[in-house]
Design a binder for these strands. Structure first.
Length: 407
RNA sequence: GUGGCCGUAGCUCAGUUCGGUAGAGCACCGGGUUGUGAUCCCGGCUGUCGCGGGUUCAAAUCCCGUCGGUCACCCCA
């Protein structure tokens, strides 16, 4: 047996990779349109970044991290999510003013793989740092929603909740803890454990969903500032035309969230995983990482799951395929260079094959048209053929670009 | 971490019940048409039957072990 990609990792090959290319380029242009600059941060960080940032009580930190020591004995971890590293970078750079940044790339979590859940998976994400204004929350939620809609994810719904802040959350946590303590006997083993560390995450347990259905929601305990914040986020979403549903039980799996928490749910066809993305506000995160107080809000979307939910690309991959008869090899190569220099997506075969083989290759590659360089070249002409309806014309070689653009 | 299903050609799989020459479709290559794809016809290539051991005259098939894949639970993207 030859070597295989490690468990839970995927090769993303053509033609399927064309979907990925579209998802990533759409992300870049949309993030840019909303004013987000590119940020690149390391794929691995000091383990502390995630222990402190993501939270010791989380599933991610307890069971799912790829942690290793480098040759000097430093504990490093492949990033299981993007936010902690970006906030670390902002602090390290001085934490001045406001920063709006977008990124994309691989994340790593040690889990049993299944459809839509891989050990190396890909997220696109963004962070809006340095403001606690509700406009920022709404903007982030809106961008994610528009992106998912634009890329063709069916039936996207936004679930929204507020988890409160330092002011009101302690009161809520105590109320929740007391409520859960009274029902200890009804909770599963896992929940009994998380009850000690982080009672709010018991709401996330599917096994106990029936028990906690009537549990107090953070939304009922919000202080006035948090109430105002939530209602501002909601009214911004309303005026932006972003549909959402309040989800009082939504708490998410990472400890750093304050106030706004949200999730995008889609109807992924073959996968049990319906969450295609999520995010929230994390006003306390920078301080957890040892920095000054820096408010922020962000989101992450799972590219693997989006790719599972959208139809495969059917657009042609090439504008033109250049073929030639035996004597005109050099001329065909020169023509190819010229076409490529003008930005036309063009290709040809790397070796001289029969015309039949060349046409077959053109068809397989998804070309819109074929240009034949043959005897007509002597009078400055080529044969130009459309592959969709089979029609062809003889045109002057200088008219090729015009002809292609008319298709 | 736990459970179900599955490992045979590049891909999807049949063949395993009841041991007896390793198969089909698709894909790929060539030809029909030495200047035309997608359709049609003809031909060709492709295998450590996941791996190791056992039983047997004989194992893809039966037995034991092992590795891998996949789906699902938990949780998340």
């Amino acid at each position: 047996m030859s070597l295989r990609a490690p468990k839970g990792t995927d090769d993303i090959l053509p033609p399927h990779s064309r979907v990925w290319r579209r998802l990533l380029s759409t992300w870049e242009s949309m993030a840019e349109a909303y004013g987000y600059d590119l940020i690149m941060v390391p794929f691995f960080e000091s383990t502390e970044v995630f222990n402190r940032g993501v939270g010791e009580s989380t599933e991610v930190v307890q069971k799912q991290m790829y942690t290793f020591e480098d040759k000097k004995g430093r504990s490093l971890t492949l990033r299981p999510e993007g936010t902690a590293g970006v906030v670390r970078a902002f602090i390290q750079a001085g934490a001045q003013g406001v920063m709006k940044v977008a990124y994309s790339g691989a994340m790593f979590r040690y889990e049993q793989p299944q459809a839509g859940r891989r050990r190396q998976f890909y997220q696109v994400g963004l962070e809006y740092l340095g403001t606690d204004a509700a406009d920022a929350d709404a903007e982030v939620i809106e961008l994610g929603y528009r992106y998912l809609t634009a890329t063709g994810v069916p039936d996207v719904t936004v679930q929204l909740n507020s988890l409160g802040d330092d002011e009101c959350r302690p009161t809520y946590i105590e109320a929740l803890r007391a409520w859960l303590e009274e029902r200890r006997g009804l909770l599963c083993q896992d929940s009994l454990r998380t009850l000690e560390m982080n009672p709010m995450r018991v709401l996330d347990c599917k096994v106990c969903a029936g028990v906690v259905a009537d549990a107090p929601s953070p939304i009922d305990y919000l202080c006035e500032a948090c109430q105002t914040h939530l209602s501002e986020v909601r009214s911004r979403l309303d005026s932006a035309g972003v549909p959402y549903r309040l989800a009082p039980r939504l708490v998410r799996g990472l400890d750093y969230y304050t106030r706004t928490a949200f999730e995008y749910v889609g109807s992924a066809l073959d996968a049990a995983q319906t969450a295609v993305g999520g995010g929230g506000r994390y006003d306390g995160l920078a301080e957890l990482l040892g920095g000054p107080p820096v408010p922020g809000v962000g989101l992450a979307l799972g590219v693997d799951r989006i790719a599972l939910s959208v139809p495969d690309a059917v657009d042609p991959a090439l504008d033109v395929f250049v073929v030639n008869t035996d004597r005109y090899r050099a001329e065909a190569r020169a023509l190819l260079s010229t076409l490529r220099a003008t930005g036309i997506r063009s290709d040809g075969l790397p070796d001289q094959r029969s015309l039949k083989a060349q046409f077959k290759a053109a068809d397989r590659r998804g070309a819109v048209a074929v240009i034949v360089v043959g005897d007509e070249w002597e009078s400055g002409q080529v044969v130009a053929k459309r592959l969709d309806d089979g029609s062809q014309v003889v045109i002057g070689s200088e008219e090729i670009v015009t002809w292609l653009k008319s298709l």
